[in-house]
Simulated assay, not measured.
Amino acid sequence: MKILQQLKSRWGITSNWQVLVILIVFACTGFTALYARRFVFNLIGIIDTDPFWLKAVVWLVTILPLYNIFLLIYGALFGQFEFFWAFFKKMMSRMVPGKSGSGG
Rank of each mutant, 00 (worst) to 15 (best):
Q18R: 00
S100R: 07
K2E: 13
Y67P: 04
W53E: 07
L72A: 09
P65A: 03
N42G: 06
V58E: 08
A33N: 05
G12R: 14
F70W: 07
C28G: 14
A76I: 09
C28Y: 00
V21T: 14
I46E: 02
Q5I: 05
Y35A: 04
I63H: 00
A36Q: 04
L72V: 10
L60N: 13
I44L: 14
G98F: 14
G30K: 01
W85T: 14
F39C: 13
Y74F: 15
L64G: 01
E82Y: 14
L20H: 15
L71Q: 11
F26H: 06
L34K: 04
M1L: 12
S93Q: 02
L72E: 06
G79C: 00
A86F: 13
A33Y: 09
G12N: 14
Y67S: 04
R10E: 13
I13Y: 01
M1N: 06
Q80F: 06
R37L: 05
K89W: 06
Y74E: 02
F52Q: 14
L66K: 00
F88H: 15
A86P: 05
R10P: 05
K8G: 01
R37M: 02
I44A: 09
G75E: 09
A86W: 13
K55Y: 02
L54V: 08
I22W: 03
D50F: 02
A86C: 03
Y74R: 11
I73D: 10
